[in-house]
Write a protein that binds this DNA or RNA. Structure first.
Lengths: 335, 335
DNA sequence: ATCGTTATCGCAAACGTTTGCGGAAAATTT
DNA sequence: AAATTTTCCGCAAACGTTTGCGATAACGAT
């Protein structure tokens, strides 16, 4: 079965392709009668304009590119869901790429999306992204770009984020008011803004409550479960036990959680623990984890809305806006 | 910044676009010297062929369409990860659509992908898909199609699945040998093959071990957590308690799990429970759930490999093949 | 000197759509 | 009846690429 074209319709009616094109777009130059005949035939044969041809004319597709570190991570898959949801209703489709936390692959993905003439890009950078040149070339080509959650600090574009410092501050404050005093922080790569900010919030809370910032209780690692597990292991091995942990995200918290349980320590009595993101899993472990609810789905939706607005505004340059979504500390039994 | 075209290069060198095109594709008609000059300029300006124009010529893109019920579900996001992984290395990108378990939206998505001239489609159908006409029209247009996990029974195409009946049989057999006798089954929509087959495996195991199949212990519901919760609620309300539950999937198992805990019943002493899929969460709840490991990532990879093979084989018709991946029962403390 | 070969390249069409421009016919005004 | 306007539509170019075919020149062979 072949796709029917505007030319096919034109031939059937003995008119020109341009007339058909105009008839379908309700151009005032075309007689009502002709419009009707064209429309009827188009309906009958389920005519849909060839979007590739349209893209070639416009030098732009109706595809939104999405770049995330890893699709299968709760936070990102949920954000992608949100992006798809908004895109779908606005008539766009989404191409999803994952960098696998790899800088080079992120660059390749970005260039591939540019080259595929996507209408815009929504991205969350990898933890190893050392510069934003690839994103700068996106901007240079006039392609709308929005970061969500993990933004690239040397590229001035719109972003949808949360107040990481404040969220961390609140989380750690909560621990302190619960009576915890030796609070460790399992953080991620120093390069990532979100890590820097959460660390900042952590320090600020300690200072505010006149607690010392103990360097040996700040554990640098990755963002995965294994990293949390390893950091905990390290603390245990060094006999440097904290009485509470604020983890940079939920997977890290879960990793620590497992190691703590293996060590036979009780949560929250021996060690309190706070995660970050409100992954589904945190509500189901025993005891359920206190965590910061990060509205992943909404972040995806907002990012897409912002991006589509940029795409359809026809303006070449936009002043970057930053949307900060609210987080809520969800207090459960782990603290 | 504008994209450089083949014509731009041609003009710079004072030759024709066709020569440039042939030079870049190493056509034997072109002098080595010319090839070198062209290649040099192409490198210098980072020339990449406009893929939209290429698509228009070929009437086909290098995009693989992916349709899943819900992106954010563990199983699917993991499968998508696998698809992306394979696609990436083969030079394809993926467009991801979600049906939200809605039949009409699945149809819209499918038509949208056809209309966007994707090179092929990987799909897992919604639980409300009542017929496969939309997929038939994919086949009719010669677009390669592969189902994974949830296949459409009235469309004869390749699929990547697991042996649902056998996996269910093994899971229930395990429960029986553990001494459980009143084993309930929380199943999903009757229309879904995977549900039918898992139910079949459940019944077969009971029969094989001379246990009665008790209709009131077969609970029909959806595939989400809430459904498992509700089914369990129902059993409790009717004072119709089983001593074990085989759930159609992990979310349903988790839902039941929560209701069981709320009821103050002990797992596995009072009620044993087996899930299906090996979602990450099952390993982290307390007690961890016995479940059937369903290789989601591999299913995604295999599907993509199969699809790409079809795409690149240039043949118009393929005899549908079915790849059945192995499952393993992961025995944990919930049984 | 004529012919056939080979090497090298350009022309033009095609993919399907959109759109500026111009043109013929019809309707209206003078 | 002539002039003007309006209505309606087609031509052709353009987006960037690929490719069949033909063209030209250089070359060696007869």
């Amino acid at each position: 079965m072949k796709h029917i074209t505007i030319t096919d319709i034109a031939k059937k009616l003995g008119i020109s392709a341009s007339t058909v094109s105009r008839a379908l777009s309700d151009h005032p130059d075309i007689k009502e009668e002709t419009k009707k005949k064209v429309q009827q035939l188009a309906d009958e044969f389920y005519y849909k304009p060839n979007s590739i041809a349209q893209s070639l004319k416009n030098n732009r597709t109706t595809i939104i590119g999405v770049i995330v570190p890893e699709i299968k991570h709760d936070f990102f898959s949920s954000a992608i869901s949100g992006i798809e949801e908004v895109a779908y209703h606005a008539g766009y489709t989404i191409i999803v790429c994952q960098s696998n936390e790899n800088f080079e692959r992120e660059v390749v993905n970005t260039n591939s999306l540019i080259h595929q003439r996507v209408a815009g890009i929504v991205a969350s950078i990898s933890q190893n992204t050392i510069n934003g040149d690839h994103f700068k070339s996106v901007v240079a080509r006039g392609i709308p770009l929005v970061f969500f959650d993990r933004a690239c600090s040397d590229v001035a574009v719109s972003k949808v984020i949360i107040d990481d410092a404040k969220s961390a501050f609140d989380a750690v404050s909560h621990l302190i008011t619960k009576g915890y005093k030796r609070i460790a922080h399992f953080t991620g790569p120093k390069e990532l803004d979100i890590c820097k900010l959460r660390l900042k919030g952590y320090s600020k809370a300690l200072s505010e409550f006149n607690l010392p910032v103990i360097e040996s209780l700040i554990c640098y690692g990755g963002l995965h479960e294994a990293d949390g597990y390893n950091s905990m292991e390290e603390l245990i091995k060094n006999n440097n036990l904290p009485d509470a942990i604020f983890a940079v995200n939920d997977p890290v918290a879960i990793g620590a959680f497992q190691r703590i349980k293996e060590a036979g320590l009780r949560i929250p009595e021996d060690i309190g623990i706070v995660g970050f993101s409100n992954n589904k899993i945190t509500a189901l472990v025993d005891p359920p984890l206190t965590t910061v609810n990060q509205p992943s789905f909404e972040m995806g939706k907002k990012s897409a809305e912002l991006l589509i607005e940029m795409i359809e505004s026809e303006k070449q340059s936009f002043k970057p806006t930053t949307i900060t979504l609210n987080t809520v500390l969800i207090i459960r039994s782990s603290t």
